[in-house]
Design a protein around this nucleic acid. Structure first.
Lengths: 183, 183
DNA sequence: CACATATATATCGAATTGGCATATCGGAAT
DNA sequence: ATTCCGATATGCCAATTCGATATATATGTG
C-alpha cells in the first residue's frame, strides 16, 4: 500500500490539506501507519494530475496558500478497487526488540531503563486511544481497540518477563564459565 | 536503525554471507525487523570499506563466489556504541488494519475472509516461534515470547471483536436512514 | 526575551524496496 | 519426460519513502 492510496483513504473520511492529512495519520492511524511530508505532498500532486483528487486553494495571510483536497468519483472508485487485493503482511520495525536481543552488550541498568520507558509510553498510548474511542464508528472502535489490546498485552509481557533480559549481564558471566555446553 | 547496524548485529551472532544474513532475519527477526537484498548487499560493501567487517571470498562452482563476512574489532565497538541511544518508536505498517478501518467499503463477506486468514497466519506464526524457543538464550526467548504474546493477544481480539466490522455492511445501511445524527 | 510549538507547503539527498538479471541444481507436479 | 518452482548467491536499478531543511508568522512557555 503506497502513500497515494493512504491519502485517498484519509480523504474519503473528509476533505483535507496535506498538512491535515499528516495530522490525521498521527491521530487515528499512528499505531499502524504513518507517512512523511516528503511523501504526502508529491502523492497529492500526482493524484491531482491523475484526476483522482480535486484541489481548491484557499489564500491565507502570512502563510502558504492552503490547498484543500477532495476525492473525485474516479478517486473513490480507485480507493475501493484497492481493497480487491488481500492485505499484505504487517511490517514491524522495532529498535527496542533489536536492543533486547543484544541486551548482553548493553551497560548494566540500561535494559531496565529501556523497559521502564517503554511501559510508560505504552500506558500513555492506551490512555490516548481510550480518550478517542467514545464518539467513533464501530470500524474505528475496532481498530483503536486492536491497538489497545496489543499495547496492554505488551505491557503485561514486559512486566512478567523482564527478568529474562535484566539478569542477562549476570547470566552471561555464568555462561562464560561453561563454554563446553555451547553449540 | 539502518541496515548497516542490523548487519553488524546479525554478524555478532556468527559469520555470514549477505544471503545468510537475509535468511537469519527471516528466521529470528521476522516479527520485528526485515531488510531486502537491495539494502543488505550495499550495506556490507560499505561496512567493508569502513573497516567494520572483514570479508573472505569462497569460490564456488556454478554459483557466484560466496562472500563470508565477519566483524572486526572496530565493527564490534561500533555495534555496542549504537546502543548508547535509546531505541526509537516502533514503526508498524498494517494494510490489514487500514482495510478494517474502511471495512464499510468492502464487498460483503470479504471482511470475514480477511479476518479468518489473519487468524490462521497468526496461529502458524506462533507455532513457528514455539518450535524455535527450546534451545536459545534468555534474550532470544524474551524476544520470541514477546512476539508470541502479541500474536496471541491479536488472535483473541479478532475473535472477540470481529462483529464490530463484520456487521458494518448492515449498520451502514441503517446509518444511511438517519443522516440527521451525522456530524 | 529566547525558545519551542503550531500552521502550511515544498525540495532534496540518502536510504530502502521490490523486481529483474544471471546461473545451476534438485524435487515436485503435469 | 519435461516443465516449473524454490533454494542458492550476488548485484543493479527505477520507484518510493524518509528525514532534514527552508521559508514565514503567531502564540504560548520558561
Amino acid at each position: 500500500m503506497d502513500v497515494r492510496t493512504l491519502c485517498l483513504g484519509v480523504l474519503s473520511l473528509g476533505d483535507a490539506s496535506g498538512y491535515e492529512i499528516k495530522k490525521r495519520l498521527e491521530d487515528t492511524f499512528s499505531h499502524f501507519y504513518d507517512a512523511s511530508f516528503g511523501s504526502i505532498y508529491p502523492a497529492l500532486t500526482r493524484l491531482q494530475k491523475d484526476g483522482l483528487v480535486h484541489c481548491e486553494t484557499e489564500a491565507q495571510a502570512n502563510r502558504p496558500d492552503k490547498k484543500v483536497y477532495n476525492l473525485t468519483v474516479d478517486g473513490r472508485l480507485k480507493l475501493v478497487a484497492q481493497f480487491n487485493n488481500m492485505p499484505g503482511r504487517d511490517r514491524v520495525r522495532s529498535e527496542f526488540l533489536v536492543a533486547m536481543l543484544f541486551s548482553d552488550l548493553l551497560p548494566a541498568g540500561r535494559v531496565g531503563e529501556m523497559i521502564d520507558r517503554r511501559i510508560d509510553e505504552h500506558r500513555k498510548f492506551v490512555a490516548q486511544l481510550e480518550s478517542r474511542e467514545v464518539r467513533s464508528t464501530p470500524a474505528q472502535q475496532f481498530v483503536a481497540g486492536y491497538g489497545r489490546a496489543l499495547y496492554e498485552a505488551a505491557t503485561n509481557y514486559l512486566q512478567e518477563n523482564r527478568y529474562l533480559v535484566e539478569s542477562e549481564a549476570l547470566l552471561a558471566q555464568v555462561d562464560n564459565d561453561r563454554v563446553e555446553v555451547a553449540d
